[in-house]
Design a protein around this nucleic acid. Structure first.
Length: 742
DNA sequence: TATAATTCTCTTTTT
DNA sequence: GAGAATTATA
């Protein structure tokens, strides 16, 4: 037992008081309010180790949930350092992965097979588009994207199609209700689930089948959740079902870092945790081990402008540090040159590239910066936005594999049936689809007997026969569980996919071939990993699940000599000695669309996240003008810059802000005339910004909200518009919002 | 039916 | 300024 005592001592050494309190707290609900950089992952992993070391839980009785694969991987690695191989028995994974794992075992109870397909956003939208066509709804009036958002929102709140239909108000919602029904029917028919379904169906299974609930709730003695502020209602319910009985639920989060409201995250989950669990024990972690006091003061000052945060103030023992550097640049190119030059200078001083990160609000902003970094010969990595798994050739290859696993998936089938071209056009394909629909046979079976399909021409029948002959051979091959890399290569070979690409002899095709090579490598890695871990049961279905749940943000590397570029959202949970936040302009950050939708506070939290990533040096830059859409636009400095006290920055005096500032610069820019040869977005003889062009009572249209009337004008170039379609009143930045006169 | 040309539309953040 | 989606043409 002396061993255990020493083990515990080592485990707890180096923790501060609140951290220690969180790690050693006994049974019952536990809320950890963990400020940025306060060591929350440390607390989580140490508590896991503590629970195991004190026999409060066996490894397989621990469920530790994160949002990203990256975070799950990191938690697993760090826990392994503390408890060794025992970590293998634990469930340390994302919400979606955990739900998928449950569903593989129990989906049959809901009428799915265990080989169901997981649809990503693009797949889901394609299917919704098909539902729209089927229902005869004009996809221009109601875009698949907006309908999908609405459905996704409903699912996150655990509202099924019937529940949604009960509470429709507008015509738009009525339409969504119809599409929702059709969409659900189609998904189920194709044995497919979208991302949201993974959670919804997991909740369904737990609610409907007591024995399943007993099984999991009984097994998981302790449930730990990271980033709790980002949970939505479905996730909340899922956790509740699993942890209600034993009540050993530990949630860790920071309400100030809740930045996924747009995806259904409900900040109330964390704000009201103590109401839900009146006996909850609360621990606040406020000591920051990451940043200088200057950076923390700036973060505290910005977030103070939000209402309804849990009061919390970060402090550090690391000292004051240098002032925050704020720079105004002419345009995005000058901004990129400034960042590049500054990075260059830092590198000369001996800073390593891995210590530098650049954050931006939208992925599009990275392009100019990349160009400049390339010219400056600075190696970098871009996190996210690359969309490897969204490339057409990768989706095609995966769709082939899906078809072999889930022959009911008409979406995947439709994708590959004529890729490469084999003379099966959309007309023929719709005939087979219709046949499959009316007869209730799977798309695979329908296509296997094309002569049964009414109206199908002779050449089309022949083409289907040839195609399906190949597919049957491949399916046969797949049943013997070959290495997936091998199978994939065969698929690409036998279907003529590679051949068609090779025949193109273009640079693009060459790139696609390389991407497919890369996919084969991914498969080979999976095969290798499965081989070394005999506990795992590798399968094509599992491989496909892994791929479906992977995200671009997962392949970040920290040890290479690379400067890192990413969106602010991707930056959460990371830290860098030197941080640049670029594009700090109204309309860019805070983003105009977020402003339209009342998401200012969330934008501010995003700013808080960005600032608190910096350990030593923080740069905020903004450009006077910027190309948006290919048209030049003007933006005032971000209000967030103004919210940082001057004393914390190196700026001499307050920058001019608001409409006056915009106008002054706009005018001077126009008069400067010659720079770059670009033309302002509005006529040169109308030097005032577009904002002034709108008048009270004027009729305008907005591509998304439809027709409306200007009901107010506010300083800062903001117009208030009342939209007739949904009766809403919205404030928009006239320069940036896509509004036009009627 | 396939390809080429052309016309739109979009861009917030992501499991 | 880039994609996708649609339309025209072979």
């Amino acid at each position: 037992m002396a061993d255990t005592a020493t083990e515990l001592e080592t485990l707890l050494s180096g923790l501060n008081d609140p951290q220690r309190e969180a790690v050693t707290y006994g049974e019952g609900p536990l809320l950890i309010l963990a400020g940025a950089g306060s060591g929350k992952t440390r607390v989580l992993t140490h508590r896991i180790a503590y629970l195991v070391a004190t026999d409060a839980a066996k490894p397989n009785e621990i469920l530790a949930i994160t949002f990203t694969n990256k975070a799950a991987g990191e938690m697993r690695d760090r826990a392994e350092l503390l408890v060794g191989r025992r970590v293998r028995a634990m469930w340390v994974m994302t919400f979606h992965a955990a739900c998928a794992r449950m569903l593989r075992a129990h989906a049959d109870k809901l009428g799915y097979t265990r080989r169901f397909t997981i649809y990503d956003q693009a797949d889901a939208r394609r299917l919704i588009k098909r539902c729209l066509d089927e229902l005869g709804i004009d996809p221009k009036r109601f875009t698949p994207a907006s309908i999908h958002n609405q459905i996704s929102d409903a699912k996150n709140k655990l509202r099924d199609a019937d529940a949604y239909a009960q509470m429709v108000g507008s015509f738009f919602e009525q339409t969504v209700a119809d599409v929702y029904r059709a969409y659900e029917r189609e998904l189920h028919r194709m044995n497919a689930m979208d991302f949201d379904d993974l959670l919804v169906r997991a909740v369904n299974v737990l609610e409907l089948f007591q024995e399943v609930r007993d099984q999991y709730a009984g097994t998981f003695r302790h449930v730990l959740v990271d980033e709790y502020q980002d949970t939505n209602h479905a996730q909340y319910r899922w956790l509740q079902l699993l942890a209600e009985e034993r009540r050993n639920l530990m949630v860790v989060g920071d309400d100030a870092q809740s930045i996924y409201g747009f995806r259904g995250a409900d900040i109330r989950n964390i704000l009201e945790f103590e109401d839900t669990f009146p006996d909850a024990h609360v621990v606040k972690l406020e000591q920051n081990y990451r940043s200088t006091q200057t950076i923390l003061d700036a973060a505290n000052a910005v977030i103070r402008n939000n209402r309804g945060q849990k009061p919390k103030s970060l402090w550090t023992e690391l000292g004051q540090g240098d002032p925050i550097k704020i720079r105004e640049l002419e345009d995005e190119h000058a901004e990129a040159r400034f960042v590049t030059g500054e990075v260059q200078r830092l590198l000369d001083e001996g800073v390593s590239r891995a210590e530098v990160a650049v954050f931006y609000r939208t992925n599009a902003q990275s392009r100019v910066l990349q160009d400049t970094l390339v010219r400056g010969d600075i190696p970098y990595q871009v996190i996210g936005g690359t969309k490897f798994y969204e490339r057409a050739e990768i989706k095609d290859a995966i769709a082939y594999l899906i078809t072999l696993v889930n022959p009911q998936d008409a979406g995947a089938f439709t994708r590959i049936v004529n890729a490469p071209r084999r003379g099966i056009g959309s007309t023929s394909m719709s005939r087979v689809l219709a046949f499959s629909n009316t007869t209730g046979t799977s798309i695979w079976d329908a296509a296997s007997e094309p002569e049964q399909v009414p109206g199908l021409g002779g050449p089309a029948v022949k083409a289907f026969k040839r195609f399906m002959a190949t597919m049957h051979v491949l399916r046969e091959r797949a049943t013997s569980n070959p290495p997936i890399a091998e199978l994939l290569k065969e698929v690409l070979q036998e279907t003529g996919y590679l051949e068609a690409l090779e025949a193109e002899r273009t640079i693009e095709a060459q790139g696609r071939l390389e991407n497919l090579e890369e996919l084969v490598n991914v498969a080979a890695e999976y095969d290798a990993a499965a081989e070394t871990d005999p506990a795992r049961e590798p399968s094509l279905a599992e491989f496909l699940e892994q791929i479906a749940l992977i995200s671009d943000a997962d392949d970040r590397s920290d040890d290479e000599g690379l400067v890192t570029l990413m969106t602010l959202h991707n930056a959460k949970g990371l830290e860098y000695p030197i941080v640049f936040m670029i594009g700090c302009e109204e309309g860019v950050f805070p983003h105009s669309r977020a402003l339209d939708e009342g998401g200012l506070e969330e934008e501010r939290r995003l700013c808080y996240v960005g600032i608190t990533r910096a350990q030593r040096d923080l740069y905020l830059t903004y450009a006077r003008t910027r190309n948006v859409f290919g048209a030049r636009s003007f933006g005032a400095p971000s209000r967030f810059i103004g919210e940082i006290p001057d004393g914390l920055t190196d700026r001499e005096q307050q920058q001019p802000r608001g409409l006056a500032g915009v106008r002054a610069r706009a005018t001077s820019w126009v008069s400067a005339g010659s720079s770059g040869g670009s033309v302002p977005a509005w006529d040169a003889d109308a030097p005032t910004p577009a904002a002034a062009a709108f008048r009270m009572g004027e009729d305008v249209t907005h591509p998304k909200f439809g027709e409306g009337v200007v009901t107010g004008l506010e300083p800062g170039g903001i117009v208030v518009i009342h939209f007739s379609r949904d009766g809403s009143e919205r404030k928009m930045v006239a320069d940036l919002a896509p509004i036009s006169k009627r």
